[in-house]
């Protein structure tokens, strides 16, 4: 076959005339805006939060007393609340998201798959404050009874009685996690759908031909091949859950404590920034910006590793 010249060969690498050079530079400058913004976020926020960081030192992330009017800013309980609510949300959301993704890629007819996909995408289009509103006024008051019932039913069972112990409140870690789970389901579903779609049809056919049931074929042929993409989907869902602010602030009960009781109130970093910002000034405000910095570092780390995993598994599939 005759080879077709690359665009770059035809244009002499885009440096043929001043118009091209100018246009290329403008486009490059726009691209560099991403670096500039990310760099500025890291620099200016850290700068603004410095009074709180230097006041607390490492204690900002390792101690657990967050009492603004006594100038104590130890964010450990908030970090715990952030991690705990996000992990609980993942536990609720991942099985459902993988199930939907499998249904859409492996089972449903194209028409049904399209319908299900667009309905799930509808969940992603709902603004987070609307989730918060619904959860505050409709969900939290109604789940309290269920929490209380679970609490008294498990009072004598060893592990469960500490998990379901403490106060049983509608405005609690669990309610926040339920809302988070609903909010991250669309993104985990669509990313894991993409991952599952990359598994070659022949792999599944091979497993089925060897006498595997559909379930076994999914387990031995589909999941291992898509592992990278699925891991990334979960990580990106985790990042999204940790950064979610408004809906969580509205239902988590805003009480900075490290507790195993999932029906008790807690607090997250993002939620605390939102709910304390109005009355904050001076070093308190710096501390809240500091929470933003910690959150920024966490989410950047999680997102980078997710993208890295995707890139690596793409390379593996390509070779």
């Amino acid at each position: 076959m005759q080879s077709i010249p690359e665009v770059r060969q035809l244009t002499g690498n885009g440096t043929r005339n001043w118009g091209d050079r100018a246009f290329r530079s403008v486009a490059l400058a726009c691209g560099l805006a991403v670096f500039v913004i990310l760099g500025l976020i890291a620099f200016t926020s850290t700068n603004k939060a410095w009074p709180a960081f230097s006041h607390e030192g490492l204690g900002f992330v390792t101690t657990n007393r967050w009492v603004p009017n006594e100038n104590h800013f130890g964010a450990l309980a908030l970090i715990y609340g952030t991690a705990m609510s996000a992990v609980l949300a993942l536990l609720l959301s991942v099985p459902v998201s993988f199930g939907i993704a499998l249904f859409v890629t492996e089972f449903a007819s194209p028409k049904v798959a399209k319908l299900v996909t667009s309905l799930i995408d509808l969940l992603a289009a709902v603004p987070s404050v609307v989730y918060g509103l619904w959860a505050t006024l409709a969900l939290a008051p109604n789940v309290q009874g269920l929490y209380k019932a679970l609490h008294s039913a498990t009072a004598s069972i060893p592990v469960l009685n500490s998990l379901f112990g403490g106060q049983s409140q509608g405005y609690s870690l669990m309610t926040a996690s339920i809302v988070l789970a609903i909010m991250i389901t669309p993104i985990i579903t669509s990313l894991s759908r993409e991952a599952l779609a990359t598994v070659p049809e022949s792999d599944k056919a091979g497993a089925l031909a060897l006498g595997a049931t559909q379930w076994e074929a999914i387990r031995v042929a589909v999941f291992p091949k898509a592992r990278g993409g699925l891991t990334a989907a979960v990580l990106l869902g985790l990042g999204r859950a940790m950064g979610e602010t408004i809906a969580v602030a509205m239902v988590i009960g805003s009480s900075a404590q490290i507790t195993l009781h999932i029906f008790s109130p807690a607090a997250t970093m993002a939620g605390t920034v939102a709910s304390q910002w109005g009355e904050a000034s001076g070093i308190h405000q710096a501390a809240l910006v500091g929470l933003g910095v910690v959150l920024f570092i966490f989410t950047i780390a999680i997102n980078s590793s997710a993208r890295f995993i995707v890139a690596r598994s793409d390379r593996k599939l390509a070779s």
Binding site: L38, S45, G243, G292, L295, F296, I300
Partner: peptide
Amino acid sequence: ALRFFALVMSGVPSIVMGLFIFTI
């Protein structure tokens, strides 16, 4: 690198963007 950081930027929580504009 740009492509990678654009993806990473889409995962930065919206509250961090708000704090950023507040500080600058």
